[in-house]
Amino acid sequence: MEHSTTSEVTFTQHHSDAEFRSRVRKTTILLSVITIIELIIGLVIYKMHKGDHPSEFLIMLFKGVVCILTLAKAFYIVSVFMHLGDEVRNLIMTIIVPLMLFVWFIGAFLWDGGSYRKLRNRYHPVIETPARQGEHEKSDTATHPLD
């Protein structure tokens, strides 16, 4: 603890080897389990899409769960693997507070996209052409790029 490698570091965190190993093992298992759950949910969504009457609400719910699980994974990667959780509060805040902009960023722009779709469908509906069967030639199939 008294050992500091540069003058900028006032004190250093040192975990014992055993403590470190169990922490890394736990995090690895946790990340793997979350990924497997995400994959299972992904396959459930796939099966639901193939069904006759997919419930829009349930699909949205599952997608929301996957988003939350992804945020949990991101938290563990940043906090344990990148050791941000072990840093002093000042450093944590100087990283996390600017990232709060993402709350506005995501909300505003997804809302914008959804609103654009509604307005276009209402005032300038695009007649969508059905995709041709076995359409695999290398051609630009965009009927209305960025319409």
């Binding site: 490698t5 003058s7 900028e8 570091v9 006032t10 004190f11 002093v88 000042n90």
Partner: peptide, 8 residues
């Protein structure tokens, strides 16, 4: 000292 307790 560095208020962030890390090197530059």
């Amino acid at each position: 000292k560095s208020p962030f307790n890390v090197e530059y």
